[in-house]
Design a protein around this nucleic acid. Sequence first.
DNA 1: TCAATAGTTATTTTT
DNA 2: TAACTATTGA
Length: 821
Amino acid sequence: MSPHPQDDLFAPAPGFAAPAPAYVPPSSGLLKGLNPEQHAAVTLGQEPALILAGAGSGKTRVLTTRIAWLMSQGLVTPGGVMAVTFTNKAAKEMVTRLSAMLPVNVRGMWIGTFHGLCNRFLRAHWKLAGLPQGFQILDASDTVSAIKRVIKAMKLDEERYVPKQVGWFIAGAKEDGLRPKDIEARDEQSRVQVQIYQAYEDQCQREGVVDFAELMLRTYELLRDNAALREHYQHRFQYLLVDEFQDTNKLQYAWLKMFAPPGRGQGVFAVGDDDQSIYAFRGARVGNMSDFEREYRVKRVVKLEQNYRSFGNILDAANELISRNSHRLGKNLRTEAGPGEPVRVNESASDFAEAQWLLEEAQALHRQGLARQEIAILYRSNAQSRVLESALFNAGVPYRVYGGLRFFERAEVKHALAYLRLIENANDDTSFLRVVNFPARGIGARTIELLQDAARISGRSLYQSVSAVAGKGGSNLAGFVNLVESMRNLTQGLTLREIIEQIIETSGLAEFYRNDKDGAERLENLAELVNAAEAFVTQEGFGKDAVALPVDELAPGAIAEGLPRAVAAAAVTPDAETGEIMSPLAAFLTHASLEAGDNQAQAGQDAIQLMTVHSAKGLEFDAVFITGLEEGLFPHENSMSDADGLEEERRLMYVAITRARQRLYLSFSQTRMLHGQTRYNVKSRFLEELPESALKWLTPRNQGFGSGFAKEYQSAWERGAGLKSVVGAGRVEKPAYGAASATPSFAAAPVPKSMKQAAAEKVGAEHGGLRVGKGVFHTKFGEGVLMTLEGSGADARAQVNFGRHGMKWLALSVAKLTPID
DNA sequence: TCAATAGTTATTTTT
DNA sequence: TAACTATTGA
């Protein structure tokens, strides 16, 4: 049943030919094609700036062009720029685009996510931050299980103190810059939560691990409390750029102010869109934008309102909708692309019928020449994907669902990583507990309890307490310790790849999954882990976070201004024997927790994209379907009670609408299966908030509850029900992590030779015959090829490819490298 | 130590 | 409905 005849043919992408510019920018090639607002933003001087960047207004281009422009004008060197993003993807994109524009030394630049930059900072100043040199990072699930252990150890009721919620509380406190001592507990509940927070903090410190929020807070605190260090970084970074400023939380803004306080005269460039703030529930404060404008005395707010993405009707809908929100900074998107097609609205009798309609419409678009990956189906909550998947699967249409488990979050991968972490740091109790009895080796809950008691009493780690447990459990535990010890011995001197292969075998994981009837996929993932490690090591500059230290970049003035030499010296502590700066394994483990891996559509596979509206942020598609536009769902019932919640839902809708380039469909259903019950829904208020002139109803407007839809619904579900068991089997093959979807390596980026060579030649002369590209000999690692030389004097370091020993970073003051011919 | 069973809960989630 | 957790029984 096609709900309507195909009334007009889908026009292939017309291409948004840029209109003849009324304004002719200066001759510089970099600035060519920028509109006046973009041009103004890019060429602002060294002053605080707030850029209101609407959806599709060329924000990333402005950001990268500004950095390139600053450098090309000689206003700043790579070392003087910091650019912060929220996602690894955004950071990577910036680096890629930048290196395409300019011959830049990407390694020296501080471009990364908030957490990535904090990691880099703390790796350099671990001693001052009170961390062990090889500290590891807990991901979200590690954090919850660590908290769970604390709650158990304190013998508290897990019903009353739910680990996840306590985790929320702790993260929330940290994001407000609060330590346990800073929180005044008003009631029993929060008093105990503070105690848990304190105990958790002690535990993390003991184990040498930090969670995501801790990365931010430690960095903030160290800068706050160490004037010399703060001075150094403020002096160093002359230009700072922050992407997605509307998503920053309180701590992130405070963090920024440590690097660049108002009035210090640095060029702080904050880019954001208050209308796209959809993470308030996670602590994001849109208010940071107006605070920034006020505190930094921003002279001119630049608004980027010219949209290069969507046709007029789509923008009209977006503008009209968002105008209903109050407290906006004020912005209206415009386009020169013409009205385009109307926004189509469809009503269905049931969620099943909706899925069926969607399927047919999407197929029609595809037949008219639209690639499947240019079609996105958006929904408010994940649960809604089921019916859609079912329909697509039955029709044999390739699709991809965003937002499942990511690569490094898969159980088998986490198991392997836990073994690796134990090799690096045996006191990591989280990792210990994860694998002490996996694969099963006769260590039960009782034994673990005894061990935990012993550890608690002596204040030592589980690993260190093993000898305290006697009996059968004790001997099994001793066996586990022996296993870890032997893994550490066996992996000495191996490449990262070999280390991982070795532990996958010795740990018994491979054996376990080989015997498991559906362990094949898990084995594949473990193989993929090996590939990921290989790809990681091959990337030029893999250990950059450990070695890109401030020492060699100290502006002469900074030392004069009092940065103690000791601070600088504390930065690098190479291995005493080999001179190695950071082991590839340690670097890889950090990478694994900071970047959970992709779960994005595989390139080359043409599949329809399914995702929540949240995960669609930042993406764009030729055709977009927004589904489930019903009161209670979108806007979600949990957000409808207060005005702020409703406004955030409206912004969410705004984000959804502005994803579409050419075609936008809005869809809702009279009934929907929710929590096992059929719910009768009213269409979303957001539909009423759109301009009638931009819409085209495919079904009669205000159609009442019609004839016998329930019957149709019933039979439809019965047809669908038999196929539920196979839902998901039709998903497109999962992306390969290492090989196929590994990030484009920095090595592959076109870093022009001239600059690289010049840099190499410059330092090359200083290091007694060592030349980049030539052979070197190391007493332990043997022969290798010198890849990079940088720094000078005591801080000089080299990156060497030792073939079977892999790529390594070495401190020349320690490592004995001799040139060979 | 595990597998079966009962009970519970149900937005969004860049790091 | 279905997915996840916690407990129980073999």
